[in-house]
Write a protein that binds this DNA or RNA. Structure first.
Lengths: 182, 182
DNA sequence: ACAGCCATGTAACTCGTTACATGATTAC
DNA sequence: GTAATCATGTAACGAGTTACATGGCTGT
């Protein structure tokens, strides 16, 4: 059993294992502050279609929300949790895939002005600083529940991983800038 | 002009700017030792279909090879080089996208045994070590032409970037293992 | 009243993959 | 002779995106 779902499907299912029920819209928001940093945050339309598939498989259940407007809130089912666990336990993680357009362009540095490559890296450093701010804000949100055994222990670990990764990229980019400007 | 090509198309075109002519098969091999580390190495079939598109656009030209068997060797054209430069100069690089299945699984650590998470990280460390060996071999191949202004100056920079990235990931994973085992 | 967010979907399309198919050359 | 590598493609499919369409609720 399991396995015949795109990883993004399991990822979304995983975002529903933190005890609450979410609308598709809210799930997308959660993906934007979590999945985005080490996976991809799926498009709105994919969130809905993936939820529809999970629902059909009985892995989540949608209920009418009790807000002022008509909504559907999704909760993971016991079966969904079994599937997810079984997937985690019986499949290999595999190696990360990085799509790094800055590195790709650096590779082709012989085709453009040196100044162009320099401003490419500078721009990347600025983007990195912004991403770091965003992720630090997420990290702070988790602060009150990040102890051993607490609800946000593992999400906190992942956030710390992301922060360390950004710090590393900043260091690398700065060194590169030195190498390019001297 | 430019722009209406998948990035992978430009990447393959870029691999043809190092002065030689390659068959689709050889281009795939070059992608495997370069693109793979910071982009994706496209499937064989995509290399051929992308080459066909580039040829149709006049960005590369295929010629009959002079080996003992019938082959087609591709070379970038002057137009192709103009397109590629124009693409590099007129479009934004964008932020890297990381698909990190290990981080994704760590996020869901509350669903599995602690030992399972530990061996997940250990496995990742082993994979990282292997990738590092592979990339170090590539770096060594570039060693004789990696000076300022030389042919492999920028590829060398990218390889160094990759090596620093792997080192950073190793450090992070080891720290994580400490946090998980104590 | 109007902008902005909340909320949900459908349709068309592209990228990229796997599976399949073919055959020639080289090394043992 | 036979396995591995070189070499080139086609076909079917799935993941994921953008564009489009709709409409209710909230704050100013």
């Amino acid at each position: 059993m399991s396995q015949e779902l795109p990883v993004t499907g399991y990822a979304l299912l995983g975002l529903l294992t933190f005890g609450d029920a979410l609308t598709g819209y809210e799930l997308k928001q959660r993906a934007d502050i979590t999945l985005r940093f080490y996976w991809t945050s799926p498009a709105m339309s994919q969130v809905y279609s993936e939820l529809a598939r999970l629902d059909e498989l009985g892995l989540v259940r949608g209920r009418d929300g009790d807000g002022s407007r008509p909504t559907t809130v999704y909760r993971i089912t016991a079966k969904g949790e079994r599937w997810l666990k079984s997937w985690l336990e019986s499949t290999e993680a595999g190696f990360p895939v990085l799509k790094h357009p800055v590195a790709l362009r650096l590779l082709l540095g012989h085709l453009v002005d040196p100044e162009h490559t320099i401003s490419l890296i500078e721009r990347y450093l600025a983007d990195l600083a912004q991403s770091r701010v965003d992720l630090e804000a997420v990290r702070e949100m988790l602060r009150d529940e990040d102890g051993p055994g607490e609800r946000m222990e593992h999400p906190s670990m992942v956030a710390d991983w992301g922060l360390a990764h950004y710090a590393s990229e900043q260091r690398i980019a700065r060194d590169l800038l030195d190498r390019l400007t001297k």
